[in-house]
Computed example of a mutant assay.
Amino acid sequence: MTLKNCFLLWRSWLVLASVAAVGTLGGCSAAGALNALVPTDSYTLRSAVPYGPDPRQQLDVYLPVTRQQPGPVVVFFYGGSWTMGERDTYRFVGEALASKGITAVIADYRLSPQVRYPVFLQDSAQAVLWTFDHLAELGADPRQVFVMGHSAGAYNAAMLALDARWLGGVGLNPAQLAGWIGMAGPYDFLPIVNPDVQVAFEWPGTPADSQPLFHVSRKAPPTLLMAARADTTVNPVRNSEALARKLTAAGAPAGISIYEKVSHVTLVAALARPLRGLAPVLERIERFVQSPAAVAAE
């Protein structure tokens, strides 16, 4: 093995170790450690674009350097128990999608305790509205708009796709989405035991219709769910597997992939170029974006 290869191997293991270490503490901010190794030649970045008046209502756009236009666009929401998170931490997600010819919109949203449910859903809907309003300048196809999220962000994406109240509030409809992607999302979490989440959802006054499983119907857009078998933060059986079963029973196209070698945190970290060997999540997302109904039915 050459000295250069030794260095590259050591660097990849260092990043993996740092992500795993922070991940055991429940810190989704561990994702930021990956950005040092993310290429910058696959995208053009438009940073800190406002979609509302609040400082937290901003988004970053990752435009693929090369692709046939018009193409797909994915609006991504990060996790953090609705209490933490920054869009620039997820540059590795934007780069991963852009490297496959997919425009990525990564949105901040207001967090608890500044706000409570459902404000973060209203912000998420506003970010999707901004995307629809700017499709032409993004070189995006209005028939290929997706929402995607990890952890709490997957909840946001699920609610936009399944509960028409939120996109309806900004003049859109879930039927306008080509599909949605949930990574390690909480879709059925009542009663709430996490103290931070209790504040965010004003437990015990949390309404039953705050849960994505409550809104499953045949009209749901094509769905791709991904989870880690060993996830100790969000139970994959109660959440991802149960949602997939209920969508399928309702007649909605829904696919699910459960991965064995990742955790709650490293599932999304596997989108980063140095860690893609952990699980083929990027390939699965790419195929879903290319053919949502077909891949969801697999």
Rank of each mutant, 00 (worst) to 15 (best):
E86Y: 12
P55Q: 00
V65G: 04
P64K: 05
P64Y: 05
V93C: 05
Y51G: 12
Q57K: 11
S81V: 12
V65P: 00
R87G: 03
Y62K: 11
Q57Y: 03
Q69G: 04
V74L: 13
D60I: 09
G52I: 11
T66K: 15
W82N: 08
F92S: 07
Y51H: 14
Q58P: 01
V93P: 00
P55K: 02
Q58D: 03
P72Y: 05
F76W: 08
R67D: 07
D54V: 05
W82K: 11
S81C: 12
G79H: 02
M84S: 15
T89R: 14
F77L: 01
Q68F: 03
D88M: 10
Q69P: 07
Y62H: 15
G85I: 03
L63G: 07
P70I: 04
F77C: 02
T66M: 05
P72G: 11
P64W: 02
Y90M: 03
D60Q: 11
P64G: 06
L59C: 07
G94P: 06
Y78E: 00
T83D: 05
P55V: 01
M84P: 01
T89C: 01
Y62N: 10
R67K: 14
Y78Q: 06
P55E: 03
V75G: 06
G71T: 11
F77I: 00
V73Y: 06
T66A: 15
R91L: 12
M84Q: 13
Q58N: 12
F76L: 02
W82E: 06
V61C: 14
Q68Y: 04
R87Y: 02
Q69M: 12
L63C: 10
D60V: 09
R91E: 11
E86D: 14
P70H: 10
P72M: 06
E86L: 14
S81H: 13
D88R: 12
R56P: 01
V61Y: 12
M84F: 04
R67G: 09
G94I: 04
V74T: 11
D88A: 15
Q58G: 02
R67N: 13
Y51C: 08
D54T: 06
V93L: 03
V75F: 05
V93K: 02
P64H: 09
E86G: 01
P72Q: 10
P70K: 13
F76S: 02
T66F: 05
Q69N: 13
Y78K: 05
Y78C: 03
P53Y: 03
R56T: 04
M84H: 09
G79R: 01
W82M: 13
V61H: 12
L59T: 07
F77A: 01
V65C: 06
Q58F: 06
G79W: 01
D60G: 09
T83W: 08
L59A: 07
V93R: 05
P50Q: 10
G85H: 04
D60K: 09
P50N: 09
F92E: 10
R67C: 13
V74R: 11
V73D: 06
F76R: 04
Y90E: 02
G94K: 07
M84T: 12
G71V: 09
P50L: 11
P55L: 03
R91N: 11
F76I: 00
P50I: 10
Q69A: 15
V74I: 13
P53N: 08
G85E: 04
G52T: 12
Q57F: 03
W82R: 13
R91S: 13
E86Q: 15
P72E: 10
Y90P: 01
